[in-house]
Simulated assay, not measured.
Amino acid sequence: MRLDHDFHLSLTRLANFTIIEQVLNNLHNLTQLMGLKAVSKHRRMKNVLMEHHQIIQALEEKNPELASQAILNHLEKTKETFIIVDDS
């Protein structure tokens, strides 16, 4: 979970989104427990790592469309996982 948080903070720092970085830091503590539950219960960690890899690859390729698509996909999958966890 710490590496996941660091990954997201790195993206905000790379984009120079100071306000988003502050928001992520504030939300981190609130979402950490639910995130741990989601990752362990639904074995999502492998997929999260793959999604992060796709984001990094698109950034390395300097492909903003692919990066946006990869980020949106990651957010959607994460949202789906949280809905499942919240319902259980």
Rank of each mutant, 00 (worst) to 15 (best):
M1G: 11
M1E: 07
R2Q: 10
L3T: 14
H5P: 02
D6R: 10
D6F: 08
D6P: 04
H8W: 15
L9Y: 06
L11A: 04
T12S: 08
R13L: 13
L14G: 08
L14P: 02
A15V: 04
A15H: 09
F17D: 13
E21A: 15
Q22S: 13
L24V: 02
N26C: 06
L27A: 11
N29R: 13
T31N: 06
T31R: 10
L33H: 13
L33E: 14
M34F: 06
K37P: 00
A38C: 13
A38T: 03
V39E: 08
V39Y: 03
S40F: 04
H42F: 15
R43A: 09
R43Q: 10
R43H: 05
R44H: 04
M45N: 05
N47D: 10
V48D: 07
L49Y: 09
L49Q: 07
E51G: 03
E51T: 02
I55R: 02
I56D: 05
Q57Y: 07
Q57M: 14
L59G: 03
E60C: 08
E60R: 11
N63F: 05
N63I: 00
P64W: 06
P64I: 07
E65P: 01
L66D: 05
A67M: 01
A67C: 02
S68I: 06
Q69D: 13
L72A: 00
L72D: 09
N73A: 13
N73G: 04
H74K: 09
E76F: 13
K77C: 09
K77T: 14
T78M: 11
K79H: 10
E80L: 14
T81D: 14
V85Y: 02
V85Q: 11
D87K: 14
